[in-house]
């Protein structure tokens, strides 16, 4: 009762309190981890410790191999994101506008959506080898599927009455598309782009982790195999931070672009 009232009257102070609680939790976990490693309950050789991880982070920030790997991963991610999201948006829009093509091909996308996409990894390696291309291809696949599904859902959101207005005022298809369909479907398209970012990254990193011989994923695998757990965890941490940063930048841009909603 009191919490719902608080949420209604002072959302800002609730958000701030939530932030503190979250920070306190993360800090507690780190302290516990450090203490357990210190007293030997946690084996440092397998699990490292926070202080070591942060030290490693400092070293890796100036390590040419790590920086090169980060560059490779970024390049692969941007490529996968651009191709997968672009293709997903186009496909989603086509499915949203054309009943026949949707009925014919959308079920295939839905099957891909349900199947654990990792089963395609060995296949992609056969096609593209162990280099960067396999990772990009996997990122494209993941992004494409999620973007398509979201964009189709977005186009379904455009209400019939808006099409009726367009028809009643003699709108040509391009005008209707630019002024009605695209902005009406914007929430779905933006959600799709975010899924494109996330899945493009996930796809690239997973491929690097398990099959490729380049990028951050490969380096994490290498460090883990050599029991350089602090380095492996530092890289993981850096990747997580990068994704979170990208996500919050994107959600700012998105709320600016759809400011008519609230």
């Amino acid at each position: 009762m009191s919490s719902t009232t608080a949420a209604r009257t002072e959302p800002r102070s609730v958000a701030r309190a939530a932030l503190w609680l979250r920070a306190a939790f993360v800090l507690a976990v780190l302290v516990l981890w450090e203490v357990l490693a210190e007293v030997g309950v946690v084996d440092e050789e397998f699990a490292s410790r926070p202080s070591a991880v942060f030290q490693a982070l400092g070293h890796l920030a100036v390590d040419s191999q790590a920086l090169g790997a980060a560059g490779e991963t970024m390049a692969a991610f941007l490529t996968a994101f651009a191709i997968g999201t672009g293709a997903g948006i186009v496909t989603g829009v086509v499915f949203g506008l054309n009943r026949l093509l949707r009925d014919a091909y959308f079920p295939i996308v839905m099957v891909l959506m349900v199947v654990p996409k990792s089963v395609f990894l060995p296949l992609l390696v056969l096609f593209f080898g162990l280099g960067a291309t396999a990772g990009i291809a996997f990122g494209v696949l993941l992004a494409f599927v999620h973007v398509t599904v979201n964009v189709v859902a977005g186009l379904d959101l455009v209400e019939q009455k808006f099409y009726d207005v367009g028809r009643a005022y003699g709108a040509r298809p391009t005008r209707l598309f630019l002024d009605v369909i695209l902005p009406g479907a914007a929430p779905g398209i933006f959600a799709g782009i975010w899924h494109g970012i996330r899945n493009g990254f996930v796809g690239v990193v997973i491929a690097q982790l398990f099959v490729s011989t380049n990028g951050i994923g490969y380096l994490v695998r290498l460090y883990s195999n050599n029991f350089q757990i602090d380095n492996a965890m530092a890289l993981t941490l850096a990747m997580a931070a990068l994704v979170i940063l990208t996500g919050s930048l994107w959600s700012r841009l998105e709320s600016h672009l759809t400011r008519w909603r609230d």
């Binding site: 009455k161 808006f162 009726d164 207005v165 005022y169 009605v180 902005p183 009406g184 008519w260 909603r261």
Partner: peptide
């Protein structure tokens, strides 16, 4: 619409 223009029941304004 230059001959006969519609006004719909639910306004049908574009929220964006």
């Amino acid at each position: 619409p230059r001959n006969a223009a519609f006004v719909f029941q639910d306004y049908s304004l574009f929220p964006w």
